[in-house]
Nucleic acid binder design. Structure first.
Lengths: 222, 222
DNA sequence: GAGCAAAGCTAACAAACGTTAGTTATGCTC
DNA sequence: GAGCATAACTAACGTTTGTTAGCTTTGCTC
């Protein structure tokens, strides 16, 4: 709207300045953006500091002006990745507060999946490389993870207290199951075969209702 | 015989033979077993040939007597991993052929999960490191993967043709969803919190029946 | 005992890695 | 213009990596 029109000439001038100097600063955020994309695409082991620098248009040594170590970069990306998905999930369930269990659960599933597949290189990089990074890096990311897990556990506990979830379902296990299943989509999701939106709908439907035409009793005790 | 007894007359001959030789051949299979365990535990990037050799009780260079490259080891492990889970899954559904949809699906889920969590270092290593290895290695493992996927697609197609699966469920998507969710358990499964058997039962129950006490209509179209 | 194959060892190679020290160019502030 | 902070560059370091060539040991077969 009006704001955008006012902003347009500003960005134009910035771009112009960038072209003129030919030395547009990449900076901390530029490095993180590039690194997050590379980690998401290629995994942790395949991405060296030299590769990150090359993709960012600088030299490897220059990275140490902004970061103290490679691990520091990775931790920053992992934390931002959790924060991004946590924030979107919290907003999503807040937007439908008061809705029934199915609506709330669908909103949470949709927010998590869209954060991974549509929105954030940081969130998808987190899922992709968390299992590949050194233990110390994992430890540094754990508090953010715990907080996000607690958000899910809180949501699921409320639904269970309302009697919306079947008794057989354990909250912690269901959370692990759900997030694990959603994260796994990263390995094969192809936007040309269908949108993240449609995928979220399909996942929600299976998790809420199951795949059988008729419900079955468990064939063996849990 | 006689010569050996003269050389070391003080040691019990049987024990001595085992201890003294201390050069029980490790061999190709020994290297693969150790490597599969290390890959499963630590991921691809953290496991070097020197680490594998050390764990196997030999030196790094000796590995090249049995394998032409590191990739050759990894491909062998990945292929064996798929074969192991494929074999168990095929036997499982064969054992319950003639059963109803719920029984067959439960058996397949149980077989896949137990192969990963209880039985095979090779299968769990496959799931763990497939996303971390070079493209050429992934390509080499693809035929085995395709065959296993086809087995699942065949099973799910039969169930759907029988009318046992809800119409909304797409076979390919359901297979990706199921295997992805089951594989994800590898990241957090802890046998002290419950057996793989119990976990398989819980997964089957959620996938077959959903988590809601009452079924819901999809809130948005797929 | 001679010959031989299986299995492993030693020592080195080039390449790539994370990291560091010292230097240079740019642009703002007084 | 002097001083300074920002953001980069260059060149090297020590280590680890996969890999190779050549040598030794062990045990079986004739």
């Amino acid at each position: 709207m009006l704001v955008e029109e006012l902003r347009a000439p500003l960005t134009a001038s910035v771009l112009k300045a960038a072209e003129e100097s030919s030395r547009a600063p990449v900076g901390r955020d530029g490095i993180l953006n590039v690194a997050a994309r590379l980690f998401r695409e290629q995994g942790y082991g395949a991405v060296s500091l030299r590769r990150i620098a090359e993709a960012a248009g600088i030299k490897a040594g220059s990275i140490y002006y902004h970061f103290g170590s490679k691990d520091e970069i990775v931790v920053a990306i992992l934390d931002e990745g959790i924060w991004a998905v946590h924030d979107r999930m919290r907003r999503a369930i807040s937007d439908v507060s008061g809705g029934d269990a199915a609506t709330v659960l669908r909103a949470a599933i949709r927010a998590h999946l869209r954060a991974l597949l549509d929105v954030s290189d940081y969130s998808s990089a987190n899922v992709r490389i968390f299992g590949q990074v050194p233990q110390s890096v994992r430890d540094a990311n754990l508090p953010a993870r715990r907080a996000y897990e607690a958000e899910w556990d809180g949501l699921l506990s409320r639904l269970k207290a309302d009697g919306a979830l079947r008794e057989v379902v354990d909250v912690r296990r269901l959370r692990l199951m759900l997030i694990g299943a959603l994260n796994a989509t990263l390995e094969w999701f192809d936007p040309e075969r269908g949108s993240a939106e449609a995928l979220a709908s399909a996942y929600a439907d299976v998790f809420l209702n199951g795949v059988l035409t008729k419900r079955s009793d468990p064939a063996w005790p849990s």
